[in-house]
Design a protein around this nucleic acid. Structure first.
Lengths: 175, 175
DNA sequence: GTCTATAACTCGATAGAC
DNA sequence: GTCTATCGAGTTATAGAC
């Protein structure tokens, strides 16, 4: 059992990750839940508000799972790859922030700011876990490479309709 | 001097790469050229037709420039990076196919098929240029990693509003 | 909290004049 | 080739009943 808000967030995340922010409407969202679009506006006054709530929830869940996985594996880089991999294969969809990041200035600025913050936190997390024998600048560079590859690999794998593309592209990160 | 069709394709490519397929309308496109949306329909009966023409033109231009660059540099991998880099920095926009690839099944199937073909050709081109001392499977894997990284790096750099992110992420590919 | 009803607007697309 | 005019459907968002 989940509340209407949770079902709404789940459905919206699923649809936006599949088709993009502009291809998702309050009406379709409501119809999927068996309610009316006016009820969606009760929970989120504007579409922008829904978007921001989505990215915030996505980020929190992402880092929760990542921390858990990192402790379990004792290999931070492998943990990041695993979390990204699971995000792709469990839903056959790219990252929420990958989609919104691509849509760039086509979405409200408050939303793209939140997306950028997700990426920065992601980069910082990885840079922090890399060996301190490497310079801070080089750790940052490697972290950026890692996120770029994983985000691109999700997009490439869904476009080519083959999850193995993700695995092969990500494999280089462990070398 | 360029024809109306060319101006139309230029404007549409610019806008789709900036905001996505669904955020671009025939009306806005026409207004940018000082004509009416009915005139856009004269050149492209459906929006889908415009999209397909765009991806085909983009692919042709891309590989033309790539071949030229590869001959000039005598380093195929560096040529690919340079062409991607120029696509980003000359327009501050991601790849047309990166955007359409992200939008996935939110765009007409004929269009996403064309996008997938672009990616496959891109991968094949790189795999072909890698040293034959490497196995075919490994060449393919490295090519997929390369495209994933470059596509993701474009998205990341525009989201973080810093082209240097692209350069740093891409640097790993030459190591 | 969910509804009906609707405002105000934009969208893709077409018919037909010039 | 470009236009005006328009259709039918979609969109976000709000007011007010229950």
């Amino acid at each position: 059992m989940s509340t209407t808000v949770e079902k709404l967030l789940d459905q919206a995340e699923s649809e936006i990750r599949e088709r993009g922010y502009h291809a998702v409407s309050f009406r379709d969202l409501a119809a999927s839940l068996g309610i009316k679009s006016a009820s969606v506006h009760y929970y989120f006054r504007q579409k922008e508000d829904l978007g921001i709530a989505l990215v915030k929830r996505y980020g929190e869940q992402f880092f929760n799972i990542l921390e858990e996985k990192a402790e379990e594996l004792d290999n931070p880089l492998q943990a990041v790859i695993d979390v990204y991999r699971n995000a792709l294969t469990s839903s056959d969809r790219i990252c929420l922030c990958g989609m919104l990041g691509a849509e760039g200035c086509g979405i409200p600025k408050t939303l793209s700011d939140e997306v950028a913050a997700f990426f920065q936190a992601n980069i910082d997390w990885i840079a922090e876990t890399l060996p301190k024998t490497i310079s801070a600048a080089e750790r940052k560079r490697q972290a950026e490479h890692c996120i770029a590859t994983l985000q691109g690999a999700m997009m490439l794998a869904t476009s080519l309709n083959d999850h193995k593309v993700f695995d092969r592209a990500a494999k280089s990160l462990l070398k």
